[in-house]
């Protein structure tokens, strides 16, 4: 194999996740989190092995700085250890819960860096007890996730790019406005519409 083959192979990897979200994996992660909630260090190690490379990638995507991402990753796992007991009642799939913690911590740090007021209110939703997910709703959400990339491709380029940048890089309305040379309210209006279209598409 030549280096060029290798490059294309690396570049192609975004098509598939290394660890696809399957029911078996979901059950396994839920089991690990439940054991972590009881203070099981071996389960915590196993959870770290299974998920840290992904969560580290999220921290890096937001922070674009290796030492800061590594430091944030540590904070993320400390939070996971401390919050595992509350996981069962929050109604999120395990990977979403973990990803959301990583993203929120990374964004907190990003905004602290810019001395912006720290706002990561998303944690609050997970803190509200929920009767969900029923098995059906879990299946529906899994289906929506499969549709997500297809539906993003149906949005106009700048809109899809904005949704990705907001989620994966912690971009704010002010950043988007500056980037597009448009007033904040205009940017907000088109992003909200894009999000609604995205939802219509994935839930249809």
């Amino acid at each position: 194999m030549t280096p060029e083959d290798g490059l294309s192979k690396v570049a192609r990897t975004d098509i598939k996740d290394v660890l696809p979200v399957t029911d078996a994996r979901r059950t396994e992660l839920e089991g690990l989190i439940a054991r972590v909630a009881l203070g099981d260090r071996a389960a915590f190690d196993a959870l770290y092995d299974a998920t840290s490379a992904k969560l580290h990638a999220i921290c890096l995507s937001v922070l674009k700085d290796r030492p800061e991402a590594e430091e944030t990753l540590q904070e993320v796992y400390i939070r996971i250890w401390q919050g595992a007991a509350r996981y069962a009642s929050n109604g999120l799939s395990p990977m979403t819960w973990l990803i959301t913690i990583a993203r929120n911590r990374a964004i907190d740090r990003l905004r602290a860096r810019a001395s912006r007021p720290v706002t990561a209110p998303e944690d609050a939703a997970a803190a509200v007890p929920s009767d969900e997910p029923s098995p059906e709703s879990a299946t529906i959400m899994a289906q929506e996730r499969r549709m997500l990339h297809e539906c993003l491709a149906q949005l106009a380029g700048p809109q899809a790019g904005a949704v990705r940048a907001v989620y994966l890089e912690g971009v704010t309305y002010a950043d988007l406005a500056e980037r597009e040379g448009l007033p904040i309210n205009t940017v907000r209006s088109w992003l909200r519409r894009s999000l609604l279209r995205l939802k219509d598409c994935v839930t249809q």
Binding site: T13, D14, D17, V18, L19, V21, D45, Y48, S52, A53, K54, H56, A57, I58, L60, S61, E70, L73, Q74, Y77, I78, W81, N90, G91, L92, S93, M95, T96, I99, T100, R103, E122, A125, A126, S130, E132, M141, E144, R145, R146, L148, H149, V163, R164, Y167, L168, L198, K199, V202
Partner: peptide
Amino acid sequence: QAVRDWQERLAGLADRLTPVMAPARARQGI
């Protein structure tokens, strides 16, 4: 519930990030 649904939906965006293993010292630090 609508907020949780959005969290679930958007988490799919992270699927396309290439995983990056952290150095062993990160686990040690934790």
